[in-house]
Every structure is written in C-alpha cells, then in structure tokens.
Amino acid sequence: MSLRILPRLDAADAVRLTPLVAEYSAALMHGPAAAIDEPYVRRLLADRVVEIAGAELDGELVGFGLYYDLPEAISARRAGQLDDLYVRPAARSHGVASRLVAHIAAIGEARDWVHLRWMVPEGSPAIALYERIAEPAPWRNFVVRIDRSVDW
C-alpha cells in the first residue's frame, strides 16, 4: 500500500474531503450528525486560520488533520492545535494517523512551535496510538456549552 501525505488541502479537494468530514461528524455526534456538505467544506478549506493536511492510501483520500497555528502566551512563542484528526475505518492500522501527526509536528518544528497539542474524547480507541506517539499533557480540558443542541 502506498501512503502519501498531502501537505495542505485546498478547494480542489473539497469533493473528496466532504465525505470524510461527514463520516467524522457522524462518528462523534450523539444524536443527529451535523449537515456536512460540499459548500461547508469549501468554506472550511478557505478559512484563513485553518490548515488541513490530507492522507491518501493508494490514491484515495482516507484521512485528514485539521490544525491551527496559535500564539502561546506562556512561552512567548507559537503552538499547534490539532483540532480534528480522522482516518476512515478501513484505512486504520496502516500508519495514516501517526504519519499525519508527524507531518503536522514537522510543520511545527519548521515554524518553531513550542508544542503540538490536541484533545481526545474519553474512551476513544485512538488513545492507544496517541500514548505511543505523544505524552499526556499536564492539563485538563473543559468546555462551556453555548449551543446545547450540539452534543459530542
């Protein structure tokens, strides 16, 4: 199998990315999945603060990592925030997620980030992978729910 990381997806990738974002949303939502369609994904790809790397396995887009380059007040530097990471179930166990994380971390090294961080839902099967490729952060995550109709 041939795994290739696409450094930055753009509008031309919207058709291929839309089903993955929809699958990801459906997998995490408790209740109705969000209305993910191509116009939404095009807006996401055009957003000025979002970057999305992709992963192809044998030419098929099977995963993505959505991340931000953010100021980090404590260190007076910048940090990466990996906000969403998804790999199609059939493509798991082929190193896709670890390669996406490594690619984004390499971007962070080039940009002098202090770290790359991400949140993981409790009970996620991906935690085992993350424990192998990263270390637990010394903080807890909290959320103020503004729109209580969205539950993940």
Results as ranks from 00 to 15, higher is better:
residue 60 E to H: 13
residue 68 Y to S: 02
residue 30 H to Y: 08
residue 117 R to A: 12
residue 80 G to F: 10
residue 69 D to V: 13
residue 72 E to H: 14
residue 16 R to E: 12
residue 106 A to L: 02
residue 53 A to M: 05
residue 35 A to M: 05
residue 120 V to N: 03
residue 90 A to F: 09
residue 15 V to S: 15
residue 21 V to M: 08
residue 59 G to A: 12
residue 71 P to N: 03
residue 31 G to H: 05
residue 20 L to F: 00
residue 19 P to R: 11
residue 128 A to D: 12
residue 149 S to I: 01
residue 127 I to D: 00
residue 16 R to Y: 10
residue 110 A to E: 14
residue 47 D to E: 11
residue 41 V to F: 00
residue 107 I to R: 14
residue 14 A to L: 01
residue 55 A to E: 04
residue 17 L to I: 05
residue 86 Y to V: 08
residue 99 R to C: 12
residue 133 I to Y: 15
residue 53 A to I: 03
residue 118 W to H: 08
residue 21 V to W: 00
residue 38 E to N: 03
residue 65 G to C: 13
residue 103 H to G: 07
residue 14 A to N: 00
residue 144 V to Q: 03
residue 41 V to Q: 02
residue 15 V to F: 06
residue 19 P to T: 06
residue 58 D to N: 15
residue 61 L to M: 12
residue 124 S to I: 04
residue 74 I to R: 12
residue 121 P to C: 05
residue 45 L to F: 01
residue 9 L to T: 00
residue 133 I to T: 13
residue 89 P to M: 07
residue 146 I to T: 10
residue 35 A to Y: 03
residue 129 L to M: 08
residue 54 G to E: 03
residue 101 V to M: 11
residue 122 E to D: 14
residue 149 S to D: 11
residue 52 I to W: 02
residue 76 A to E: 03
residue 30 H to M: 09
residue 25 S to M: 03
residue 144 V to Y: 04
residue 120 V to Y: 01
residue 134 A to W: 09
residue 94 H to C: 08
residue 56 E to D: 11
residue 62 V to F: 03
residue 86 Y to K: 05
residue 150 V to E: 13
residue 102 A to K: 00
residue 122 E to T: 06
residue 103 H to D: 10
residue 53 A to S: 15
residue 69 D to Q: 11
residue 82 L to C: 06
residue 89 P to T: 07
residue 126 A to V: 06
residue 117 R to W: 07
residue 99 R to K: 14
residue 65 G to K: 01
residue 9 L to D: 04
residue 63 G to V: 07
